[in-house]
Design a protein around this nucleic acid. Structure first.
Lengths: 197, 197
DNA sequence: AGGGATTACGGGACGTTGTTCCGTTTAGTT
DNA sequence: AACTAAACGGAACAACGTCCCGTAATCCCT
């Protein structure tokens, strides 16, 4: 739950050195800042420079770029995962809850420059990112989808994985394009699931 | 119409040199082959090597990668553009015609490894590609959309540009993923345009 | 057909980025 | 204080896009 406790309760593993902990924190903060200004595909050197460390230090702490991205956004993804059941319990219809959850997902993705694009990439370098998002969010999406099917609002036979990828794809197309409203398109997609026609 | 006639009817412009024409043709064939095997983002050097020319020759004929891509796929895009009015005249409802046209668009994009992704990129290097697709296909999509609105099948106020970007985005997410069916998702998107609900 | 002007060519040079290696430094331990 | 192992920093290497410049081919004119 907490990602600051490197050693809590584990006597066997030696605690990380103080400078290592310091650098990891600096790296996370630098990465968060650089991701905002230059997107998640910013050059490794930029992040290292901002954190005041060498490039190799990044690789030591976060073997792949995906690991770094996961670490930076972990909290927000967790929040997204917890929002699913909450929306389902909020009294709306399941289909509406699914739509609201999709909107949260979209808002998260479009504000993280380039994240959606990277999420769609099939470069194996991003596998850890892929896995994390899937592990954490796919069950939530599945639950919402199942509920909407059970309530009779949408047709059965829809695949939650495919739906999530679809939403991710639509967000990836956003860029900084004024004439492209990812929320609107995702709304159409969710509406298209509906039983009506 | 024909892209082999460099000089037809234009006395002012001197015709291209024979070796230049030869290289341009070799380049187009090499690019088509490499795009199939390695995707549209294959290294310039690979294409040059396959065509048996130097790298600078590519830049001379096709200043940006986008120009090369456009040249390779021009015929298919033209066919796509012409299919729009044909579908509209085929007796189906306009909404159905729009769906059919979208399917053709999807089939085109998903069979061109990486093309959809590049189409969504906001890298200015791809501006010519962007412009070409838009110039050629946006009017067609607009016509289909307007017809569907006029027939009362879909809600007004939908933007054809946004819709096309959405379809492109959904195709870009395909990769070589077995659990992702771009056609299905695009179908949902088009269905979501419907007036029903 | 021959010569000169021009067009086009080829490949190497440069800058950027990801990734790895290795000598050096620093934190923790005794 | 000395020793050990973890961690560091930056240089080195590779891949790629892009551009430059000396060289070669083509075309036009006489």
């Amino acid at each position: 739950m907490n990602d600051n406790d490197q050693d809590a309760g584990r006597a066997a593993a030696r605690p990380k050195r103080a400078d290592a902990r310091r650098n990891e924190k600096a790296l996370l903060e630098a990465a968060a800042a650089v991701f905002v200004s230059s997107g998640v595909e910013a050059p490794i050197r930029d992040i290292a420079a901002k954190a005041g460390v060498g490039t190799a230090t990044i690789y030591r702490h976060f073997p792949t770029r995906a690991d770094l991205i996961v670490a930076v956004y972990r909290h927000q993804v967790e929040a997204l995962a917890e929002a699913g059941p909450a929306l389902l319990a909020s009294g709306e219809t399941p289909h509406a809850a699914l739509g609201r959850w999709a909107d949260l997902f979209v808002d998260f993705l479009v504000t993280k420059h380039g994240l959606a694009a990277v999420l769609q990439s099939d470069d194996s370098c991003f596998d850890p990112l892929h896995s994390y998002f899937l592990d954490r969010l796919l069950p939530v999406c599945t639950q919402l989808l199942d509920a909407a099917v059970a309530s009779g609002e949408i047709r059965p036979g829809q695949d939650a994985y495919e739906l999530m990828r679809g939403v991710g794809s639509l967000c990836a197309g956003a860029g900084s394009n004024l004439r492209y409203d990812a929320r609107h398109l995702v709304g159409l997609l969710i509406a298209g699931l509906g039983r009506a026609r």
